[in-house]
């Protein structure tokens, strides 16, 4: 499974990519592989305020449905609306075109409390 070195990870298989005060969020390659073909994504509303660990949305495959949790707290400032018609992007490019949303964080250090790539590889046996 692909685990890019430059990202941070939650134990629940979300990734976080900090860029200034904004953190881009998605699900990991491990997560998309476990789900199988994703057929529906329920995204949060822009403007939604979340704490770390809150439910951000749902990702549904032909065989299962999973809640996605916010790896960091803050305000949802953008969502990947293209997923509503093309949720298969989560399978094809989980760290790129398959991103879920951008969260503006109150605490710019928040991502540093997440797992680094090595720790996430150990967690998943990748």
């Amino acid at each position: 499974m692909l685990v890019p070195d430059d990202l941070r990870y939650s134990k629940d298989h979300e990734w976080a990519r900090p860029a200034g005060t904004t953190v881009r969020v998605g699900i990991t390659d491990y997560a998309q592989d476990a789900l199988g073909d994703v057929v529906f994504v329920d995204l949060p509303a822009v403007g939604k305020v979340v704490s770390a660990g809150d439910v951000l949305g749902e990702v549904e495959s032909t065989k299962s449905v999973s809640e996605v949790y916010a790896p960091v707290g803050g305000t949802v400032v953008a969502v990947n609306a293209s997923l509503s018609e093309a949720p298969e992007k989560l399978n094809a490019d989980p760290y790129g075109d398959g991103w879920l949303c951008d969260i503006e964080v109150a605490d710019a250090d928040a991502p540093s409390s997440l797992l680094d790539a090595d720790a996430y590889r150990r967690l998943t046996g990748s």
Partner: peptide, 8 residues
């Protein structure tokens, strides 16, 4: 993310 069966 916590995978769970979609059907009960």
């Amino acid at each position: 993310m916590t995978p769970a069966p979609a059907e009960s």
